[in-house]
């Protein structure tokens, strides 16, 4: 975020500063801005035809729907889990807290393919650790909805926590204690004091989690089985269309997904208070 505090320290810019600015702008233009613009242009190479084709193809609509549902489930799970575990880690002490803290970041640096493999090893119906038992009670995880949700929830797990923990630490617990001492229940304290105070942290976390969930590809590819009209998500559809030489369809779907990603980032940048970050 362009920090306001910077304006205080006005200083003379040398030619070096302009050169550096130029290098940075050129780098970002070539790496991000221009390629992103080209995807938009390719998506509309045939006017609105490709986009219309996607939005009227039942299989494509199913894929987009599935992606939306999976993302919603993943965001809900990660928000409840994330806010809960953040409160526990910040406000309470228990053995193993340091280790847990470090492990909570692990999903961000595990390869999506490894995530998929890990879930397959435990939940596949044939040789998995828990899979056969779960299937005997009628719950199929791998190649089915629950597996896709778990893969997505796994990769997006740390995002809410990372946003909420620093805010919780910053606000301290004096107001919570005051509310408690005045007789508020734990629920009242949470909803009236804690939640309003961490509201922005939660919102950023949810928004980032949503973007990550809508876009998950590798882990979902491993666990979903990629069945057309059943377990094929939007990102899997992009790959499938591109490899089958439906370039227009691939670019149109990619454009939709990119549009959401950009909207997410722009909204986070705009709503984030100036003093944050």
């Amino acid at each position: 975020m362009a920090d306001l505090s910077v304006q205080r320290g006005h200083y003379r810019r040398g030619p070096g500063a302009y050169a550096l600015r130029l290098v940075v702008v050129a780098y970002l233009f070539l790496l991000v801005a221009w390629p992103l613009y080209l995807v938009g242009r390719n998506a509309f190479a045939n006017g609105f035809d490709d986009l219309a084709a996607i939005l009227t193809d039942p299989d494509a609509v199913h894929a987009l729907n599935l992606t939306a549902q999976v993302a919603l489930a993943s965001v809900t799970i990660n928000t409840v889990f994330g806010v809960g575990i953040s409160l526990l880690v910040v406000r309470y002490r228990f053995p193993g807290k340091g280790v847990l803290n470090a492990l909570l970041d692990l999903p961000l640096s595990v390869s999506p393919i490894v995530v998929g493999l890990a879930l397959v090893l435990v939940y596949n119906g044939r040789t998995g650790w828990f899979g056969p038992a779960l299937e005997s009670i009628g719950l199929q995880v791998i190649f089915s909805g629950p597996g896709i949700v778990m893969a997505t929830a796994f990769v997006a797990l740390p995002l809410v926590i990372r946003e909420v923990v620093p805010v919780l630490q910053e606000i301290g617990d004096e107001q919570e204690q005051a509310a408690r001492s005045l007789g508020a229940s734990a629920g009242q304290t949470f909803f009236r004091i804690t939640l309003p105070a961490i509201k922005w942290g939660v919102i950023y976390g949810v928004v980032l989690c949503l973007a990550r969930s809508l876009g998950e590809f590798g882990a979902v590819k491993v666990v979903s089985g990629n069945v057309l009209g059943s377990t094929r998500t939007a990102t899997l559809m992009v790959e499938e269309k591109y490899l089958n030489f439906d370039r227009g369809g691939a670019y149109a779907t990619a454009f939709l997904l990119a549009l959401i990603a950009v909207a997410v980032i722009v909204s986070v940048t705009l709503i984030r208070p100036k003093d944050h970050r």
Binding site: M1, A2, V24, V25, L28, L30, V32, A33, W34, P35, L36, L38, V39, N42, P112, L208, A211, R212, L214, G215, E216, F217, G218, T235, V238, E239, Y242, A250, Y251, A254, L257, A258, A261, V262, V264, I265, V266, V268, T269
Partner: peptide
Amino acid sequence: LEILIDIPFALPTIVAGLVLLSLY
């Protein structure tokens, strides 16, 4: 620029591949 920095984080990776393919 702030927005451009964060885009690779939010962009689905398969779309990122397609994005790069369109310029390179």
